[in-house]
């Protein structure tokens, strides 16, 4: 059951990415190009997704536990720290160069564009590297208690 529902959730997400245009780097890059060929479509993707999740989350949180798991696992960290800001800035620059964020990179993979075939493995290497940097605390402020 967990496998089936995991697959269906991913399928719905992927269909959303393709239908919305988010899986097309040209559209993403045009969204980010305020001064040029601006295409505001992705604001509608973000809006539709966030409002749906906002309402849906509040409905499912009325349950005491998720349907197929023990407990709701919600991130507890509230600190706005150096890894968060450095990471988000790095991610934004990469997003602006390639037009892919992680979800669309997966969904675009079966279309086998050369750029995607290079981007995705590089992203996996980056995820691994980023996890190491974070685990080693390389970005923690000097002398800061962690």
């Amino acid at each position: 059951m967990r496998i089936l529902w995991g697959f269906l959730s991913g399928l719905v997400f992927g269909l959303g990415l393709v239908i919305s245009g988010m899986a097309d780097p040209a559209k993403v890059l045009n969204f980010l190009d305020l001064a040029g060929s601006w295409d505001p479509s992705l604001a509608f993707v973000m809006g539709g997704a966030t409002v749906t999740a906002f309402i849906g989350y509040r409905l499912v949180w009325k349950r005491s536990t998720p349907v197929l798991d023990q407990a709701f696992d919600i991130p507890k960290s509230r600190s706005i720290d150096r890894p968060l800001l450095t990471g988000a800035a790095l991610f934004g620059i990469g997003w602006g160069i390639g037009g892919f964020c992680p979800g669309p990179a997966w969904t675009a993979l079966p279309l086998l564009a050369p750029g995607t075939l290079i981007f995705l493995p590089a992203m996996l290497v980056g995820l691994w590297g980023g996890a190491q940097i974070k685990a080693l605390g390389l970005l923690d402020a000097k002398g800061a208690a962690t």
Partner: peptide
């Protein structure tokens, strides 16, 4: 380069 940055950045920035 973009893939590396997106991967590293999203891992660091959670």
């Amino acid at each position: 380069i973009a893939g590396l940055m997106v991967g590293t950045g999203t891992a660091l920035g959670s």
